[in-house]
Amino acid sequence: MDATTVLAEINGNIATVGYGLAAIGPAIGVGIVVGKTIEGVARQPELAGRLQVLMWIGIAFTEALAFIGIATYFIFV
C-alpha cells in the first residue's frame, strides 16, 4: 500500500463531517447576532426591546439553516 492510499484512508461515515459543518455555521452566526445585540443594548439600553426582536429574527434565520442541515441525516444514506 503506497503512502497516498494510507493518507487518504478514512474510516466511518463521511456524513459526520457534514454535522460538524452544520454546527459551525450557526455557531458563528448566532455568536455575531448576540454579540452585536449586547453591543447595541450597551450603547442604548432603552432600545433593548427593539433589539431583542431583531436578535430573535436573526437567530431564527441562522438556526433554520442548522435545523435543515442536521435533518439531512434523514435523507442522506
Binding site: 431564527a60 433554520a64 435533518a71 435523507i75
Partner: peptide, 24 residues
C-alpha cells in the same frame, strides 16, 4: 417515513420563518 419527516420539517421551518418575518 424519514423522507416525509424531512420534507415536513423543512416546510415547518420555512413557514415559521415566514410567520416571524410577517409579525415583525
Amino acid at each position: 417515513n424519514p423522507t416525509v419527516l424531512f420534507l415536513s420539517l423543512v416546510a415547518g421551518v420555512l413557514a415559521s420563518l415566514v410567520v416571524d418575518v410577517l409579525v415583525v
